[in-house]
Design a binder for these strands. Structure first.
Length: 586
RNA sequence: CGGGGUAUGGCGCAGCUUGGUAGCGCGUCCGCUUUGGGAGCGGAAGGCCCCCGGUUCGAAUCCGGGUACCCCGACCA
């Protein structure tokens, strides 16, 4: 395959596009791979399309190699299947909806669980047909509130989604593992560094879920990892529970006046001033903070919930949401306080809380608040706090909740060391869905006893366009992109410089010979473009091997440059083809 | 949905404060020169200055109201 720069549909830009923030976005636009068509929606130019095809091919090869079969659904779908699983409403503003001329509702699919499930239901009805894994590579649409970072979060994007169908849990586990293994191979081939983290199954209501994250500062997902190999999405991190403490000799709880101390900070200052400890100052960690929120249950009912946690920690909204799912969290406003007089704003204490208490308000504790721990906390009266309130002696709770923020240095739950916080781009997600969709859409097969059983499913996604952007994000320098060989738009970028006709004659010959060896050649055959421009363009475009035919020709050599390292060598004309072929083939 | 910002040739920007022939750099086209690091000189094309309304003899500029886009946050199986 020979691409001539003189005719290639390409315009490189000297300056960064003003709307781009992250490197992959800036460079993919500058180097002429993509153009913005609308917010979060991109047009693919020839170079970009070549890279995209290579990513898709690798994904396809790994899926096919694992025995999964490719199908293709429409992107434009009717409302009914999504109605059956409640997702027509659950998705809210997150999907693009449209009507046909008769007024019937359609949507641009954000994902295809329903369609896959219905297709299998349509065709299969026996346990003998299973297990089955099928996949597609399809354009998906989500009306993101805020698209950002170019291809990384768009409103139109390409995703590979697979679905597995099994009769029992053991089968699902095997299918899940098969996908996990395929993803490992696939991301290795893409040259993408990744971390596999456990993830919360969340609203999808499954049993097991892991995310493949590409570590990157511009990633939108926060995850943790420990030196001993623990890794988890921040929502899925569990807190190691400390041992209970003895409290036989603990002083009795006592209520003290702490005027004007509605915040932890003011409380700690007041405690140190009026009730100083002999051994050390009070800190926020000595206080028990009680945060009240409103839970909105799926049926619409609202319930107050109080969460007790050490005063030096904040509630992490994402962890809280994940912990209370499928309920949603809303603010507890002044009007809510008015409805619940037991809750004194700024002075909430556990003594009046709990499902069994007079207030009936549910109270959940951070796992660190174990029996025997002593706290300064609200006395449920304006301007007063209680000291030496002992968990297990003076108060209890309705349960524990993982809602506190995770901090750098916190212990990993499996004892594998202190946690490090990092950011990542979610490039893959594997998910043991269970029977939710099969149940809702009535996908059953006859088992070997002739009984109807609900099929159990898994869903598995790879963000194809996002993975491409992640590769660009992780493979560039200040001059431009630096593609791994597996994805580059060409194997070699051949540059002819100079005005001597012999240069072009020789370059033409080289281009033809390299092509004959099966290499994809991007050939800069532009006549009136200065060498500087050609070099800059080559570096920007990022083909890993650059061959320059120019002034060395008089001595019978051409220059072979490695884009990534910048190293170059002069290679005798006669050896160039063999040398480049061996470099490219590795 | 909150906060901040921006809308002017293909791209990046100035002009707006203080109304009076719409500019600069890059890119594009023509000619000559140049050919190993985004070339030089000369010429040229290309603008509902986001939209609607108002003030004014006259609005890119002032006033009112919209809309769109970008960034931060919230949201995001």
């Amino acid at each position: 395959m020979l691409l001539r720069m003189s005719t290639l549909f390409l315009r490189t830009l000297r300056e960064d596009p003003v709307d781009a923030e992250v490197a992959s976005h800036k460079l993919l636009v500058r180097a002429g791979y993509i153009r913005r068509a609308a917010p979060g929606i991109y047009t693919w130019l020839p170079l970009g399309l070549r890279v995209l095809r290579r990513v898709e091919d690798i994904v396809r090869e790994e899926m096919d190699g694992a025995g999964f079969q490719e199908v293709h659904f429409p992107a434009l779908l009717p409302r009914e299947p999504y109605e059956a699983t409640n997702r027509w409403t659950d998705y809210g503003d997150g999907i693009f909806r449209l009507k046909d001329r008769k007024g019937a509702d359609y949507l641009l699919a954000p994902t295809h669980e329903e369609m896959f499930t219905l297709l299998v239901k349509d065709l299969y009805s026996s346990y003998k047909d299973l297990p089955l894994s099928i996949y597609q590579i399809q354009t998906k649409y989500r009306d993101e509130a805020r698209p950002r970072a170019g291809l990384i979060r768009g409103r139109e994007f390409i995703m590979k989604d697979s679905y597995s169908f099994d009769v029992d849990d053991a089968g699902l586990e095997r299918s899940y593992q098969a996908h996990r293994d395929a993803y490992v191979r696939l991301f290795d081939r893409l040259g993408l560094e990744y971390v596999i983290v456990s993830a919360m199954s969340g609203a999808m209501g499954g049993s097991r879920s892991e995310e493949f994250l590409h570590p990157s500062e511009i990633g939108e997902d926060t995850f943790v990892r420990s030196p001993g190999g623990y890794a988890a999405n921040v929502e899925a991190v569990t807190t190691p529970v400390p041992d209970a403490l003895p409290f036989d000799d603990a002083p009795a709880a006592h209520v003290e006046d702490t005027p004007d101390t509605p915040t932890i900070e003011s409380l700690v200052a007041c405690a140190n001033e009026r009730f100083p400890r002999a051994d050390r100052p009070w800190t926020a960690a000595d206080t028990l903070k009680n945060v009240v929120v409103t839970l909105v249950h799926p049926d619409g009912t609202r319930e107050p919930l109080v969460i007790g946690l050490p005063g030096d920690r904040e509630v992490d909204a994402k962890r809280l949401e994940a912990a209370v799912s499928p309920a949603e969290v809303a603010a507890f406003g002044p009007e809510d306080f008015a409805k619940h007089p037991a809750l004194v704003r700024g002075y909430i204490g556990p003594q009046v809380l709990g499902a069994e208490s007079d207030s009936g308000i549910r109270y959940l504790l951070d796992p660190r608040v174990v029996d025997g721990t002593r706290w300064i906390t609200g006395a449920n009266e304006e301007g007063r706090h209680v000291f030496d309130l002992v968990k297990g002696r003076d108060f209890g709770a309705d349960g524990v909740i993982e809602a506190a923020e995770v901090r750098e240095g916190d212990a990993a739950p499996d004892g594998s060391g202190p946690l490090e916080l990092a950011r990542g781009i979610e490039i893959g997600h594997i998910f043991a869905l269970g029977r939710r969709f099969a149940q809702a859409l009535d996908l059953k097969v006859l088992d070997e006893n002739g009984k109807q059983v609900v099929v159990t499913m898994g869903s598995y996604g790879v963000g194809v366009t996002r993975a491409l952007a992640a590769v660009a994000e992780g493979n560039h320098d200040d001059k431009g992109l630096v593609w791994p060989r597996s994805l580059a738009p060409a194997d070699v970028h051949l540059v002819a410089t100079g005005k001597d006709e012999a240069v072009f004659t020789e370059a033409e010959r080289l281009a033809a010979e390299l092509g004959a060896q099966g290499l994809d050649v991007l050939y800069d055959d532009r006549r009136k473009v200065s060498p500087g421009v050609k070099f800059k363009d080559a570096e920007l475009i990022g083909v890993p091997t650059i061959v320059v035919v120019g002034k060395g020709l008089a001595e019978g050599v051409v220059e072979v440059k490695d884009r990534r390292s910048g190293d170059s060598e002069q290679v005798p004309l006669a050896d160039v083809v063999a040398s480049v072929v061996s470099t490219v083939r590795g």
